[in-house]
Design a protein around this nucleic acid. Structure first.
Lengths: 100, 100
DNA sequence: TAAAAGCACTTTGTGCATCAAAGTTATATT
DNA sequence: AATATAACTTTGATGCACAAAGTGCTTTTA
């Protein structure tokens, strides 16, 4: 059986993988654009484009708010995102087990 | 700490990941070009190019031989390849654990 | 014995993705 | 008034994945 058939194309990018991982860990907290940027050590433009890919796939949700009058954008994982990410991790785990 | 800092760029391709996985499992057997092609369900040209990337990085070794007079090419993982792949799997595992 | 098929590629070409850098708009700080 | 921060968008370069077609050699089949 094809060992890579269940991997999710969207999660082949390290940055998208990292975003999902961070959002998964912090399910109950708001994670801001800047948190992600610092955690993953990426340029803001690059991060923004990966975030929009994840959003287009409905794997994450964006909350645009304010702190006072200053914009504050936070991100969270969706149900679909959780499911997709868990599926991908399961596929990776299966591959890893295969190798032990 | 950056959750994706230890991932190996070479293994972001599903096909290269699959090749390494197959070669890791079958350390003691010869794995032919055609075995890989059928296991991973890829076109031969595509497979060839990924194999050559892995070879350039010294992660796999090629054995060109014959069965009778017909060419027979097989592949195996190198020590460096094993090390790199295990490192990548460890990084993935760390990320997965982070998520449980 | 001619045609078809298999092996293991290489070449070519398209389209997409990654990424950095610079630009943008609005607010905040000094 | 000048600089900085937030959260992007735009631009542009580079590279990658992939399919398809071509290649040279051998084997099988009609």
């Amino acid at each position: 059986m094809n060992p890579i058939g269940n991997l999710n194309k969207i999660f082949e990018s390290r940055i998208r993988l990292g975003v999902m991982s961070v959002l998964m860990v912090n399910v109950n907290e708001e994670v801001s654009f800047n948190d992600l940027k610092e955690l993953l050590e990426v340029t803001d433009g690059n991060l923004a484009s990966h975030l929009s890919t994840l959003e287009e796939n409905a794997y994450i949700k964006v909350h645009k708010g304010f702190i006072g009058r200053k914009t504050n954008t936070t991100y969270s994982i969706t149900k679909a995102g959780e499911k997709a990410f868990k599926g991908h991790l399961a596929a990776l785990e299966a591959m890893i087990k295969f190798n032990q």
